[in-house]
């Protein structure tokens, strides 16, 4: 028992990171996206401060196009765990009725997600914001620090990152500057699922296969989650047994055909899967460096 397993080491490392932010950063916040990574991050944070409550609020940037079930899950979790949740919506974008159907994926994400996040961070003057990103997700993230410095206008400079040695983190910033902190940096997708199973962590039911109304469009399976869905010519919703490997705005999130109705099914399915989880994200399928560009602009 004296030597920790892989998962126990990852857990301890993440708790260390979360505590370090609470101890040193001014006005921290945890970005809560409702997905499985956020679920794990929240669970680790509750462990880190037990028996005390979380010493910081959660922030959800609501693009108003999230799956209905995500919002329900979010509100139930907040109630169940007695959490302090802030919800931010880009009201300018909302007034202009910005959405993925009318404005396209890129503009919608820029306005309702990236700009909205910047607005919220400025509004509350957070000195540090936790995010659930992992290094195995994407090449640009593989190079990002755990404590990632952002300028006053939230930009990331990949060529000028602070060296990060051992487990000593530098969370010092000047007024207006901030840091993004990624406690799950060294976790892989499989680690996340294994941990959810080990710890019996609740996740949004959309991750489990069920018959859902979907249309197939440009190789993606898109769920018809509400009446705002705009069908193209000849399209019709059909019921198919699908699940989601990643969650976001429903018109921009592709489902996978699956029978995986339990966590053991998901883990078994992952082991034979031959596509990465971001494939279902419509926003990532352009230039190879797109994530890096988005990050430089202040995307998380």
């Amino acid at each position: 028992m004296s030597k920790l397993t892989h998962l126990q080491k990852l857990e301890a490392e993440s708790i260390h990171i979360i505590r370090e932010v609470a101890a040193t950063a001014s006005n921290p916040v945890m970005l809560y996206s409702i997905g499985k990574d956020s679920a794990v991050m929240l669970h680790l944070a509750r462990k880190a401060f037990y028996p005390a409550k979380l010493p910081f609020p959660l922030l959800h940037v609501d693009t108003q196009w999230k799956f209905k079930e995500m919002i329900k899950f979010r509100d139930e979790i907040v109630k169940e765990y007695d959490l302090d949740l802030l919800v931010h919506i880009n009201s300018d974008g909302a007034n202009d009725n910005v959405g993925p159907f009318s404005h396209g994926a890129t503009a919608h994400t820029d306005i309702m997600k990236t700009a909205a996040l910047r607005q919220a961070l400025d509004k509350y003057a957070f000195g540090a914001a936790f995010g659930g990103a992992r290094r195995d997700e994407e090449k640009a993230r593989a190079k990002e620090r755990i404590f990632s410095f952002r300028t006053k206008d939230h930009r990331w400079d990949p060529k000028n990152q602070r060296p990060e040695l051992w487990n000593i983190f530098n969370s010092r910033v000047q007024k207006g500057e901030s840091i993004r902190v990624f406690p799950l940096s060294n976790w892989t997708e499989l680690d996340i699922w294994q941990y959810i199973y080990e710890e019996n962590i609740p996740v949004v039911p959309l991750y489990f296969a069920k018959e859902r109304p979907v249309v197939e469009r440009d190789g993606n399976i898109i769920m018809v989650d509400d009446e705002r869905f705009i069908f193209e010519k000849g399209e019709k919703a059909t019921l198919q047994k699908v699940r989601f490997r990643t969650l976001g705005c429903y018109p921009l999130t592709g489902a996978v055909k699956s029978d995986a109705a339990s966590i053991s099914d998901i883990i078994s399915e992952m082991l034979v899967s031959n596509s990465s989880e971001r494939q279902g994200r419509v926003i990532d399928q352009d230039e190879g460096a797109s994530m890096e560009m988005k990050k430089q602009e202040g995307y998380f």
Partner: peptide
Amino acid sequence: TYISKITKNTERN
């Protein structure tokens, strides 16, 4: 509760 119900999904197998 809703949460304890959906936590069944991630219970041991």
